[in-house]
Amino acid sequence: MKAFVIRTALSAFALWVAVSLVPGLAFDYGDAESDWAKLAIVLAIAVIFGLVNSVVKPFVQLLALPLYILTLGLIHILINAFMLEITAWITDHLTHWGLEVGSFFWAAILGAVVISIVSWLTAMLIPDDSRR
């Protein structure tokens, strides 16, 4: 449970950094006015993003295996952008709050790059229990 909470918090932080840096990415807070409600919405979006990455992404990666070989792994950026788009679609259609992605080419791809870099940097700060 502790690892889930830490991963969710780090995903929320990475999403927040991406929304802060990339034009075209935004959080839609719906009717939330307090900072705690907005934080809860960002954490919920991070949970949905994590579920999309754990359920949908492996199938997409398997189907894109020839493209991984052909592009020497650069297709991974497009797949991460696609995961952002799926998260935005889910939150837009199932809730009154969520993640907004302006365009796939600029907002989603740059957001995916920023999220990957921030996730990589934060993962370096957290000790890995499997190494012990």
Rank of each mutant, 00 (worst) to 15 (best):
M1T: 10
K2L: 14
V5E: 07
V5A: 14
V5F: 15
R7Q: 13
T8A: 11
T8G: 14
A9Q: 00
L10I: 14
L10R: 08
S11Q: 06
A12G: 15
A14Q: 06
L15W: 04
L15Q: 01
V17I: 15
A18F: 10
S20C: 03
L21C: 10
L21D: 06
V22Y: 05
P23L: 04
P23M: 00
L25W: 09
L25H: 05
F27L: 04
F27I: 04
F27C: 04
F27P: 09
D28Y: 04
D31C: 04
D31R: 06
D31Q: 12
E33A: 11
E33M: 10
D35F: 12
W36T: 12
W36D: 09
A37M: 11
A37V: 06
K38H: 08
K38W: 04
V42T: 08
V42R: 02
L43I: 12
L43N: 00
L43H: 00
A44E: 07
I45D: 01
I45G: 00
I45W: 05
A46N: 02
A46P: 12
V47N: 02
V47P: 02
I48A: 06
I48S: 03
G50E: 09
L51W: 13
N53C: 10
N53W: 07
S54G: 10
S54V: 11
V55Y: 10
V55G: 08
V55C: 09
V56H: 03
V56Q: 05
P58Y: 05
V60A: 10
V60Y: 06
V60N: 00
Q61S: 08
Q61K: 15
L62M: 15
L63Y: 11
L63F: 15
A64C: 15
A64Q: 05
L65A: 14
L67K: 01
Y68W: 07
Y68E: 01
T71C: 11
L72T: 08
I75G: 07
H76I: 09
I77C: 10
L78W: 14
I79C: 10
I79K: 05
N80G: 14
F82L: 15
F82W: 14
M83Y: 06
I86H: 01
I86A: 08
I86Y: 08
W89I: 08
H93F: 13
L94R: 00
T95N: 08
T95G: 00
H96M: 10
H96D: 14
W97M: 08
G98W: 00
G98D: 01
G98Q: 03
L99R: 01
L99A: 05
E100C: 07
E100A: 10
V101D: 03
G102V: 08
G102Y: 05
S103Q: 11
F105G: 02
A107T: 12
I109D: 02
L110T: 12
G111P: 12
V113H: 01
V114R: 01
I115G: 02
I115M: 15
S116A: 15
I117V: 15
I117T: 08
I117W: 07
I117Q: 04
V118P: 11
S119V: 07
S119H: 05
L121K: 03
T122E: 03
T122C: 11
T122A: 13
T122K: 00
T122Q: 00
A123R: 09
A123K: 09
I126T: 13
P127N: 00
P127I: 04
D129V: 13
S130R: 13
S130M: 09
R132Y: 09
R132L: 11
R132T: 12
